[in-house]
Design a protein around this nucleic acid. Sequence first.
DNA 1: AAAGATTGAAATTTCAATCTTG
DNA 2: CAAGATTGAAATTTCAATCTTT
Lengths: 147, 147
Amino acid sequence: MYNSYVNDMERRPGDQISALLHAAGTVHSRLEAALAEVGLSLAKLLALQQLVDAGGSLPLGQLADRLACVKSNVTQLVDRLEADGLVARMFDPKDRRTRLASITVNGQAAFERGRQAREQAERDVLQGLSPENIAQLSDLLAKLARP
Amino acid sequence: MYNSYVNDMERRPGDQISALLHAAGTVHSRLEAALAEVGLSLAKLLALQQLVDAGGSLPLGQLADRLACVKSNVTQLVDRLEADGLVARMFDPKDRRTRLASITVNGQAAFERGRQAREQAERDVLQGLSPENIAQLSDLLAKLARP
DNA sequence: AAAGATTGAAATTTCAATCTTG
DNA sequence: CAAGATTGAAATTTCAATCTTT
């Protein structure tokens, strides 16, 4: 049992990669499903999270940086959040090139619902792992993500 | 060191989930980048893999089952593969409702190039992990994916 | 009606090109 | 010209509705 990994040595190198992508896909789907019940997607929740963390509003370019995506993505994501009434675009008095994405009252309420739905879904996903397992997983993922 | 997980106990429950999604995103991006150099995407390579494994052709519905996605997805994926000249749609003599996706000669060559690019990228991704690490990761991911 | 597949619309994301403002 | 943002096009995926064949 301690040496059960020897069987894994016979696996093709890509099996673990497939397992990682598959597990992440499953987890992602579960988060999306939980968030859909409160009318959000993970992308929308993460954007709202950044706005809340920043105190309520951010220039679109900075939001793109914090979400680690390109600016055109944020433009369209904010379009959808604005259509949902969760975010409003405002002008920056200091620089008229800048657009601020500002969370609305409805957006704050949606964020709170989404945060709770997300945390419950995450507890569900981790429920089969011991704290030691979770710590090991964190360490291994950190090594893997290292370029 | 053996007890380093105690620090992790203080983490928010979602940190490991974020790490998982982030690691998978990084790995996925690297595979896509490697495959883009040979003119493929991961979705296209996986479809070609299924066709090769099945002996050269499959009904679109069965291909959808094996790729674990909906049929309309496969319809459009095969559209793109057909536009690339890697797959051809054929009629099934036994049931005229059925369309077979059949890999072409060009498709077989593209698959071979993609397979090699993928394996190299996967070795690169796993290069920082020992065989024991890889085995642990497999075990943990299997527990996580369990519904 | 049921099975197989397709179409059209929406969400998400990226890239290249463009527009506005500094 | 630099920066900030937007637009248009493409890839990917899902869903609902539709079409064809059995």
